[in-house]
Amino acid sequence: MKRILLLALPIALMTACNNAPSAAEGDAAPAKAPAAAAAAPIDGKLLGANHWVLDSATDSSGKRIDALFVRADKPVTLDFADGRLSVDNACNHMGGGYTLAGNEMTVSRMASTMMACTDQALMALDQAVGSRLEGTLKIDQLDASTLKLTSATGDVLTFRGEPTAETRYGGPGETVFLEVDSRTKPCSHPLIRNMQCLQVREVHYDDKGLEQGKRGEFYNFYDSIEGYAHEDGVRNVLRVKRYEVKNPPADASSRAYVLDMVVGSEVVKK
């Protein structure tokens, strides 16, 4: 019996040595957690495909920011083009450069026109908009219909997308200048009774902004100019974008006109 125990002891020691953890196993570092996935880059083309109209705005506590909604009929609107952000429907037109990195947008200090508005709430709108857009913003959502931004202070601004003319008509369009006379005149149209037509003529400028040639005669303008509301007694020079309409209906124009800006205005006495 003693002889059996002595033989078994070396076997037990060998088994224990084989099962003991090695120094390399004991010192191994714990496995690292997988790195967080990088935020998907923002599609800059999608930003430029729409006008972005302010729909809602809340502060970090969820309270509505009333100061951003003083123009119920003309909500604050953002446009993105060529690395610049433009803001319309405040007291002044505002704009500044922007860059994208991951899901963040950084907006430089914005410049603005210097028009004074008599409505104090409208005057304050410029500051209310600028202070929330300048700096770094997180883009929480961007698709064809919604842009959602969060400022560094926790304000959440949500915009709805409205396709630009370039998106709707499939191209950049042609820039033309039209002088619109102060009075409309009756004009004949097969589908519209008692139609009144704008009286227009083209104006031509060189690349330095100097007018070239002589203005022709006013003629009946049967189309409409999107974004332009004619005021009787006021003559305007407009910068418009002219687009070719693909496959227009049989009774519709093959061209579309969209107001870019009013270059000049003049009140004409009767």
Score class of each variant (00 low, 15 high):
P30N: 02
A31R: 12
A31T: 11
A31S: 14
A31P: 14
K32W: 00
K32E: 04
A33P: 13
A33R: 07
A33L: 10
P34Y: 07
P34K: 08
A35R: 05
A37D: 14
A38Y: 04
A38W: 06
A39S: 10
A40V: 08
A40L: 06
A40S: 13
P41C: 11
P41V: 11
P41Y: 04
I42F: 03
I42T: 12
I42E: 07
I42L: 11
D43G: 06
D43N: 15
G44S: 09
G44C: 01
G44V: 05
K45H: 02
L46N: 02
L46G: 02
L46M: 07
L46D: 02
L46S: 04
L47W: 03
L47R: 04
G48A: 12
N50R: 13
N50F: 04
N50H: 06
N50S: 07
H51R: 10
H51V: 01
W52I: 11
V53T: 14
V53K: 10
L54D: 05
L54W: 01
L54I: 06
D55M: 08
D55N: 12
S56R: 05
S56P: 11
T58A: 15
T58H: 10
T58P: 14
T58L: 05
D59I: 04
S61K: 15
G62C: 15
G62Y: 09
G62V: 09
K63A: 12
K63P: 04
K63T: 13
K63R: 13
R64T: 15
R64I: 05
R64C: 05
I65V: 15
I65T: 10
A67L: 02
A67K: 08
L68Q: 01
L68H: 01
L68C: 03
L68W: 02
F69R: 15
F69L: 13
V70S: 08
V70M: 07
V70T: 12
R71V: 07
R71W: 00
R71F: 00
R71E: 05
D73V: 06
D73A: 14
K74Y: 04
K74F: 03
P75Y: 01
P75E: 03
P75C: 01
P75W: 00
V76W: 00
T77F: 12
T77M: 14
